[in-house]
C-alpha cells in the first residue's frame, strides 16, 4: 500500500510526546470519578431520602446519554458557568485561556463516576454483614470495623471492575481530541497538517494506543492475579 513509512517513523516520537497528556487525563478523570462514585455511593448506601432517589435517577440519565454529548455539553456549558461565577469568592474568569483539559476531566469524571457508583455500592454490599458483627464481637468501634474490616474487603472486591473501567477510560480519553485537548489523537492529526499524510498519522496513533493498552492490561492482569487469592477468600464463603 502506498504509505509514507518514513514519515510514520518520524511521527512516532511526535505523537508519543502527547502520551503524558493522555495518561494525565486518564488518571485525573479516574481520581475524580472515584471521588464522585464514593460520595454518591455513600449517599445511596446510607439511604438518605430524596438524595438517594435523586442520585439514582441522575446516574440513569448520565448513563443513558453518549459520552461524546456530555463532553460537548461540558465544553460549551462550563464557560457559561464560570462566567456566572466571575467575582464569586475572588474568582476571576479569564475567557482568553479556558482550560479544555479541566473541562474534559469534568465530563469524564461525571460519566465514569456514575458507572463506578454501581461498583462502590455492589462491592460494599458484597461484604458479608457477619464481618461487621465479628468486628463488634472483638470490641471494635463502628469506625474501626468499617475501616479495618469492611472497606478493605470491599476495595479488593471492586478491583477487577475498576480495572475494566480504567481500560475503558484510557481509550475514551481520545474523545477529548474533539474539544481541543491535545492528547494522542489530536496531536497525531495536527502532526499531519503539513503533508496530508493523514492516514499515517492515525496509524501511528493507533499503534501507540495499542501498545499502551496492552501494557496496562498485562499489568492489571498481574495485579488481579495477585489479588485473587485474597479475593477468593473474601467472596467465596
Amino acid at each position: 500500500m502506498n504509505l509514507n513509512y518514513a514519515f510514520m517513523l518520524e511521527d512516532i516520537p511526535v505523537v508519543l510526546s502527547a502520551l503524558p497528556r493522555t495518561l494525565g487525563l486518564t488518571f485525573c478523570s479516574l481520581f475524580f470519578a472515584i471521588v464522585t462514585a464514593v460520595l454518591f455511593g455513600i449517599c445511596i448506601l446510607k439511604n438518605i431520602p430524596v438524595l438517594k432517589q435523586f442520585l439514582i435517577g441522575l446516574n440513569t440519565v448520565i448513563k443513558g446519554i453518549p459520552l461524546m454529548v456530555q463532553l460537548l455539553l461540558c465544553y460549551y456549558a462550563i464557560p457559561y458557568l464560570l462566567r456566572a461565577a466571575d467575582g464569586f469568592l475572588g474568582y476571576v474568569y479569564n475567557p482568553k485561556n479556558p482550560s479544555y483539559f479541566a473541562f474534559a476531566v469534568v465530563a469524564f469524571a461525571i460519566n465514569y463516576g456514575a458507572y463506578m457508583t454501581d461498583v462502590v455500592v455492589s462491592s460494599y454490599r458484597a461484604v458479608e454483614r457477619g464481618q461487621l458483627d465479628a468486628a463488634y464481637s472483638v470490641g471494635m468501634t463502628a469506625f474501626q470495623g468499617m475501616f479495618r474490616i469492611v472497606i478493605p474487603q470491599a476495595v479488593v472486591i471492586s478491583i477487577p471492575n475498576l480495572s475494566n473501567y480504567f481500560m475503558w477510560l484510557l481509550k475514551a480519553t481520545s474523545l477529548a481530541s474533539v474539544v481541543n485537548v491535545f492528547e494522542i489523537l489530536a496531536t497525531a492529526r495536527m502532526s499531519t497538517a503539513n503533508n496530508y499524510a493523514i492516514l499515517e498519522g492515525y496509524i501511528v496513533a493507533a499503534l501507540i494506543y495499542w501498545a499502551v493498552c496492552v501494557i496496562f492490561e498485562k499489568g492489571l492482569n498481574c495485579l488481579n492475579k495477585k489479588m485473587s487469592r485474597y479475593r477468593n477468600d473474601i467472596v467465596v464463603s
Binding site: 475514551a172 489523537l185 492516514l199 492515525y202 496513533a205 493507533a206 494506543y209 493498552c213 496492552v214 492490561e217
Partner: peptide, 11 residues
C-alpha cells in the same frame, strides 16, 4: 479492543 473506537473510525 486495545485501540479507541474513534481512532478505528478514522483508520
Amino acid at each position: 479492543r486495545g485501540t479507541p473506537g474513534l481512532v478505528q473510525i478514522f483508520l
